[in-house]
Design a protein around this nucleic acid. Sequence first.
DNA 1: ATAAATTAGTTTATTCTATAAACCTAATTA
DNA 2: TAATTAGGTTTATAGAATAAACTAATTTAT
Lengths: 95, 95
Amino acid sequence: MAFKDLDPLLHNQLRLSIISLLIGVESAEFKYLLDKTEATRGNLSVQITKLKDAGYVDVKKTFRNNYPLTTCKITAKGVDAFEKYVDAISGYLNK
Amino acid sequence: MAFKDLDPLLHNQLRLSIISLLIGVESAEFKYLLDKTEATRGNLSVQITKLKDAGYVDVKKTFRNNYPLTTCKITAKGVDAFEKYVDAISGYLNK
DNA sequence: ATAAATTAGTTTATTCTATAAACCTAATTA
DNA sequence: TAATTAGGTTTATAGAATAAACTAATTTAT
């Protein structure tokens, strides 16, 4: 029972929160993720970008009521990575 | 269901491996942890020291066959922290 | 009309962390 | 006596995390 590698991208509290939230919904707005994670805007912005660059989430930038609106949606790749992560870390948890 | 904080000390692959291994045994030698984790000696040494400084493990330094021998044992505080960590991260995993 | 505050983020600068590489001391073997 | 091995520790550097500062436009108050 060797330890499996933990995807460094997901092994981060905020990014894991984001993915965890996105798993449960069709898509989520920046503000929604901000409220749920209680992160700072800057940190949230950075971590969303990393997840986007990895292909784990799709980010759509539009406008609503004249204000910018950022919407995030987990990709198939993201779902897959999350499932692998859950499987891997489970190996660390059950003694 | 807010996200609980993940103890930064345990939210690290190698340190979590160490604790995970120590949970299952009475005590473990440096070499044993080295083999099981497949870490470098340097990194293992550093991370054991951090766990010791946090009071999560007791480290005993003796000699065997004239060679230094480092033995690690998880403390009650370490067990407690691990259980809290398992509880916290579980909240991220089940969608 | 213009100053102040709000929305919705991004960029940057700094601190913190992780890790490999280098090092150390003593013992053993060639 | 010179490598090699055992069993680690220390340090140097790269990378990651995050708060603070910034951008750009909109709305509200004066």
